[in-house]
Computed example of a mutant assay.
Amino acid sequence: MAKADTVRTRAPLKTRRPPVGASPGTLIADPAARRSELRLTLISPEKFKTIDNASIDDLNTHCDRWPVVWLDCTGLANIPLIEEIGRIFNLHPLALEDVVNAGQRPKVDFFEDHAFVAMRMIDDVTAHRYEQIAVFFGKNFVVTFQEREGDPFDPVRKRIAAAMPNRLRSRGADYLAYALIDAIVDSYFPPIEAASEQVDGIEDQMLNTPHKHQMRQLHELRRDANVLKGVLWPMRDALATLIRNDVPFVKAETKIFFNDTLDHSLRLIELVENQRDMLTGLIEMHLSLTQARTNDVISYLTIVSVIFMPLTFLVGVWGMNFEPESSPWNMPELKSYYGYPAALLFMLVVAVGLVAFFKWKKWL
């Protein structure tokens, strides 16, 4: 979810692919890709160092001197830079192709000396556009590629800067990769919980007075839940794959922490599934309430019509052109002294009698 767009204007998730017939591992930048910037974090148990706006020279100078290196590349426009990063860390070209062709399904691929994790990331909980985050990690390095600035990694950076004892500085690159992936997964909780609160609010409003705009809100929220489901299920599968595989650069104790992240993803899936079920029920309830309200209106209109039918009949009869002088059967009451108030009184009695009858029948 990006900073500039809201959930209602979210662009669909699309995978950009190289031209048909291109060689595997061909890197082609998206014309809309952001300018690439590097941030290098050098980590050891005793100290750490962060270099903003880092260069390839900084990588060549510092990488071999620190136990753990975290390189964060923001923006995917500079293809030569990405290729050079791949050369320095020996990243597989097919994985780099997936980095540039953003919109990949969340997955995990294992290579000889490193792993590649592709995920969808929320870089700002106040907005609702997804962004691909690619995480490479090996024995002593972590490399992250993100499409634009903004990410949920600030808590991880603060933990790296915290005083000793510091697990992030002492447990190695696989634990740092876990912390970053865990931050990505946990970033889904605030928007999902906010959506649940919004659903509860709409439900309370509907029970009082259903409105048309509520149906639109419910459909938009269900669409968002469907998108989340499409992201979270493959993310769960990727985390399970990361735990099951035995590779030398992922320690057994780190898998325990990855298993906790897998539990978080399962919890997110449960929340989204419950939210979808509730939204479906609310949509059906809104339709039922709207139909019931329409039926009530029709019932009241029908009752009013039934009350006025005999009155209209009486007025129509008395409004005919009778001649009481020619025959005693030609409406003699037209000559009655109190004929007009008597007619009104009779019509009132008819109306009141009908209302009483409807209440007796519990139609009102």
Rank of each mutant, 00 (worst) to 15 (best):
E273M: 05
G138A: 08
T9F: 08
E84H: 13
E325A: 12
R129H: 06
A32F: 06
G21A: 05
E273S: 10
T241Q: 14
I192F: 04
T144C: 04
D246F: 00
F116S: 09
Y178D: 03
L94Y: 07
P328T: 10
L268P: 10
G103W: 05
M285L: 15
E147I: 10
F257K: 04
G150F: 05
I82R: 05
R16G: 10
L364F: 09
L364G: 05
L27K: 04
A173V: 06
L218S: 09
E149D: 14
Q217M: 14
G201F: 00
W329R: 13
Q275K: 07
L81D: 13
L314A: 08
L94C: 01
L38Y: 06
L289I: 01
E131V: 12
R267T: 12
A118K: 05
L311M: 11
A29G: 06
I56Y: 00
E284V: 02
I43Y: 02
S36W: 13
G25L: 01
P310G: 10
T312W: 01
A225S: 14
V69C: 11
G21M: 09
L289D: 01
G150N: 04
A2K: 12
E323S: 13
G103D: 03
C73N: 04
F346K: 03
I184Y: 02
I56H: 00
A77I: 01
V7N: 08
L348P: 00
D224A: 15
P155L: 11
A102I: 13
S23M: 07
S55T: 15
P67T: 06
P341D: 04
E112D: 12
I202V: 12
E203Q: 14
G316N: 07
R293A: 08
M206E: 06
K362P: 08
V231H: 04
R216I: 14
K49D: 13
T209R: 15
R65M: 01
F137T: 03
T290D: 09
F110A: 12
L71W: 03
T290C: 09
V350P: 02
S170Q: 12
Q275C: 07
A54W: 08
V349W: 03
Q132A: 07
A77F: 07
L59N: 03
